[in-house]
Amino acid sequence: MKNGNTTTYFILLGLFDHTEAQRFLFAMVLTTALASLVGNALMIFLIHRDVRLHTPMYFLLSQLSLMDMMLVSTIVPKMAADYLTGKRSISPAGCGLQIFFFLTLGGGECFLLAAMSYDRYVAVCHPLRYPVLMSWRLCLRMTAGSWFLGAADGLMQAAATLRFPFCDAHEVDHFFCEAPTLLRLACADTFVFEFVMYICCVLMLLVPFSLILISYSLILAAVLQMRSREARKKAFSTCSSHLFVVGLFYGAAIFTYMRPKSYRSANQDKVVSVFYTVFTPVLNPLIYSLRNSEVKGALRKYMGQCSALSHD
């Protein structure tokens, strides 16, 4: 590891030590990651297979599951391989790819959750006009926009971060390459870039979050005016799962990227990163399937078909 841009590798210090307790935590994280991959893959499969789920709402949900699967696949296999083999090096290209995919998927999920909140607003407040206000064309545009904005942010931050010269201390105190952590190794003034990155994070987080708050404020006002208790219950049930996912995702992201630099610590960053790269993706399919009768119906139908085939 040399000064300037002649960096040959970085060393990821990782998340766990080789103690008995740390091995148990590693096994728990790995099991959770595998459950996340299986759960999100099953969600995508059910949405694709069941015609009743071919609606904009479930298409957006399938995109959320796809992003979560890719996020786990970007982070966990490298972390697990490093822990099991003891080889914790990563090339600048590999580091850049991790930063790019991590920010692409994280940023894309921010805007996708905002699109899902608009979908719920239209479904609750304007149900008769839903096919017009939430057309397939608009749904596809919002989805493509989410991927594009996330990719633009990821490409910009990955390219800019790796352009800095890095000093002899090449150990990254993290289990994957994350831009704020990598910048601590730069032997150049990063103030301007960190300020720009902070503004980007504010826009990527607070703009969609504000749209979500507006959507659910309008939903709450509409629900409170409903006379039917059954209608209110159905509206709350439809939206509460989405709100729970939003709270988990945005809470962890805001804590990580919008804290002042003086309040950051490596251990806190690693714990929060595990939360939104491993545990949040496994909660999404659980929340949406356990609280959604249509998804549970599609799962029962598929299990029934599998059972019938096994008895033939």
Results as ranks from 00 to 15, higher is better:
residue 116 M to H: 09
residue 89 S to V: 07
residue 312 D to A: 02
residue 239 C to E: 12
residue 108 G to I: 00
residue 53 L to P: 14
residue 265 S to D: 15
residue 119 D to T: 12
residue 223 V to K: 11
residue 237 S to L: 14
residue 256 T to G: 05
residue 289 S to K: 11
residue 84 L to R: 01
residue 122 V to S: 10
residue 209 F to P: 00
residue 53 L to A: 11
residue 55 T to F: 09
residue 143 T to W: 03
residue 138 L to D: 03
residue 156 M to A: 10
residue 29 V to E: 13
residue 53 L to M: 15
residue 281 P to D: 13
residue 172 V to L: 15
residue 221 A to R: 12
residue 38 V to H: 05
residue 272 V to G: 08
residue 219 I to H: 09
residue 284 N to D: 15
residue 267 N to G: 09
residue 290 L to V: 14
residue 181 T to L: 12
residue 286 L to Y: 14
residue 223 V to P: 10
residue 235 A to H: 13
residue 217 S to N: 11
residue 57 M to D: 14
residue 9 Y to K: 05
residue 274 V to C: 15
residue 255 F to A: 08
residue 74 T to Y: 07
residue 245 V to H: 10
residue 51 V to N: 07
residue 263 Y to S: 09
residue 112 L to G: 08
residue 163 R to Y: 01
residue 129 R to M: 06
residue 33 A to T: 09
residue 285 P to A: 13
residue 147 W to S: 03
residue 267 N to T: 14
residue 19 T to D: 02
residue 51 V to P: 02
residue 120 R to M: 12
residue 38 V to W: 12
residue 206 L to C: 07
residue 19 T to M: 05
residue 170 H to A: 07
residue 210 S to L: 03
residue 32 T to W: 03
residue 206 L to Q: 02
residue 83 Y to T: 02
residue 53 L to I: 12
residue 36 S to Q: 05
residue 53 L to G: 14
residue 161 T to F: 02
residue 203 L to P: 06
residue 96 G to K: 02
residue 221 A to V: 11
residue 263 Y to T: 09
residue 134 M to F: 10
residue 101 F to Q: 03
residue 307 S to Y: 01
residue 228 S to W: 05
residue 301 K to H: 12
residue 205 L to C: 02
residue 125 C to Q: 12
residue 72 V to L: 08
residue 47 I to K: 13
residue 166 F to C: 00
residue 50 D to Q: 12
residue 97 L to S: 06
residue 135 S to V: 10
residue 156 M to S: 02
residue 19 T to Q: 02
residue 143 T to G: 10
residue 271 V to P: 03
residue 156 M to T: 00
residue 251 G to K: 06
residue 56 P to G: 15
residue 274 V to K: 11
residue 59 F to Q: 12
residue 64 L to K: 01
residue 215 S to K: 06
residue 80 A to Y: 04
residue 273 S to W: 04
residue 220 L to Y: 15
residue 241 S to M: 12
residue 98 Q to Y: 01
residue 159 A to H: 05
residue 243 L to P: 07
residue 70 M to F: 13
residue 121 Y to Q: 08
residue 309 L to S: 05
residue 251 G to L: 05
residue 105 L to Q: 00
residue 162 L to E: 04
residue 82 D to M: 01
residue 103 L to I: 00
residue 13 L to T: 10
residue 67 M to F: 15
residue 38 V to M: 09
residue 21 A to P: 02
residue 120 R to W: 08
residue 148 F to Q: 03
residue 102 F to S: 07
residue 183 L to Q: 10
residue 187 C to P: 04
residue 159 A to Y: 00
residue 120 R to G: 13
residue 76 V to F: 14
residue 214 I to L: 11
residue 10 F to Y: 08
residue 149 L to I: 12
residue 217 S to G: 15
residue 243 L to I: 11
residue 36 S to W: 06
residue 91 S to L: 00
residue 105 L to P: 04
residue 51 V to H: 14
residue 22 Q to T: 06
residue 26 F to T: 03
residue 51 V to E: 15
residue 193 F to S: 08
residue 84 L to I: 03
residue 230 E to Q: 15
residue 303 M to S: 06
residue 75 I to N: 07
residue 111 F to R: 01
residue 37 L to K: 04
residue 109 E to P: 03
residue 240 S to I: 08
residue 138 L to C: 04
residue 75 I to F: 13
